[in-house]
């Protein structure tokens, strides 16, 4: 969605540099990237009302499309034809989620020294059902504490 946003926003609303700054800040916050960019762009142009309007505009099309699909799907989920389709789709979904694990590991430069963090997180969340919320909290805490030590040295 970002390239699309850049094409629409850079020029009439933002300079190229503004857009880059906004994407960088948007990436520093939790939540949905495209919505974060919308919030910041709207805020820059018209403060809080602008942020509300932009976020609403960015979310509404998917909201409506998904609602329509959900309405349709509730009626047809039991249909044997639909059932067969999804029996094929489900394993493929697992593959689609598995691919970014490897692409991200490559781009994040995961090494043998750091891979244990990924493995430990995966096992804790998958097998021990530990909430990802706690995992994120612990990660931030460790990062801040050890980061201080690192800087002190």
């Amino acid at each position: 969605m970002l390239p699309l946003m850049e094409r629409e926003l850079v020029g009439p609303y933002l300079s190229k540099q503004d857009f880059l700054d906004i994407t960088a800040v948007a990436q520093s916050a939790p939540g949905i990237m495209a919505i974060n960019v919308a919030i910041l762009t709207g805020y820059r142009l018209c403060r809080v009302p602008g942020a509300c309007a932009a976020a609403l505009g960015a979310a509404l099309p998917s909201f409506i499309i998904i609602l329509l699909i959900a309405l349709f799907f509730r009626k047809f989920a039991e249909n044997p034809f639909v059932q067969r389709v999804f029996m094929g789709v489900r394993p493929a979904v697992v593959a689609l989620i598995l691919v970014p694990v490897f692409t991200l590991a490559k781009s994040a430069g995961v090494t043998l020294k750091t891979v244990w963090v990924c493995v430990a997180v995966a096992l804790a969340v998958w097998l021990l059902k530990i909430s990802p919320v706690y995992v994120v909290l612990v990660a931030v805490l460790c990062g801040v504490l050890f980061g201080k030590k690192e800087r002190a040295q």
Partner: peptide
Amino acid sequence: RLVVIGLIAA
């Protein structure tokens, strides 16, 4: 960044 990779794997 490492945690996110683990979360997606999970």
